[in-house]
Simulated scan of single mutants.
Amino acid sequence: MVETKPEQTGASITYSRMNPFQARVIENFNLNKAGSNKETRHIVLSLAGSGLSYEAGDCLGIVPKNDPKLVATIIEEMDWDGESVVTINKQGELLSLKEALTSYFEITLLNKKIVQQAAELTDNEEIMNLVLIENVQMLKEYMDGRDFLDLLRDFGPWKASAQELVSLLRKMPPRLYSIASSLTANPDEVHLTIGAVRYTAHGRERNGVCSVLCSERLNIGDTLPVFVQKNKHFNLPESADTDIIMVGPGTGIAPFRAFIQERAAQNASGRSWLFFGDRHAATDFLYQDDFGTYQEEGALTKLDTAFSRDSDHKVYVQHKISENSKELFQWLENGAYFYVCGDKQYMAKDVHNTLIEVIAKEGNMSTEQAEAYLNDLQKQKRYQRDVY
Rank of each mutant, 00 (worst) to 15 (best):
V228W: 03
E7I: 14
D289F: 10
A282G: 01
A254W: 06
K140N: 12
R217E: 14
L176W: 09
G203F: 01
D304G: 12
H233Q: 11
F29E: 10
S272L: 03
K159S: 15
V340G: 05
M365A: 12
Q116V: 04
M78V: 10
T223I: 14
K38D: 11
L377Q: 03
R204T: 04
A254T: 03
E327H: 08
G156H: 00
T283N: 11
A56E: 01
F291R: 08
E296P: 10
T9D: 14
L109D: 15
A306T: 13
M347W: 03
M172W: 03
L60P: 13
R382A: 07
D147E: 04
I253C: 02
V387R: 02
S272P: 10
I321C: 13
Q378L: 08
A48C: 05
G342D: 08
V351K: 05
L236M: 03
E134P: 04
T200M: 01
P174S: 07
T242P: 08
A48V: 11
D188E: 09
A258M: 00
E323G: 10
Y287C: 02
I194K: 07
I253D: 00
S272W: 09
A201T: 02
V131W: 00
Q137A: 13
L355D: 07
H42F: 05
E327T: 11
K33R: 01
N324H: 00
Y316V: 01
G49P: 00
A281K: 04
E3T: 11
I26R: 13
S96Y: 07
H42M: 06
A240T: 10
E297Q: 09
K5C: 03
L236S: 08
T193Q: 04
T87Y: 09
F256P: 05
L121Q: 04
L213C: 04
K361V: 03
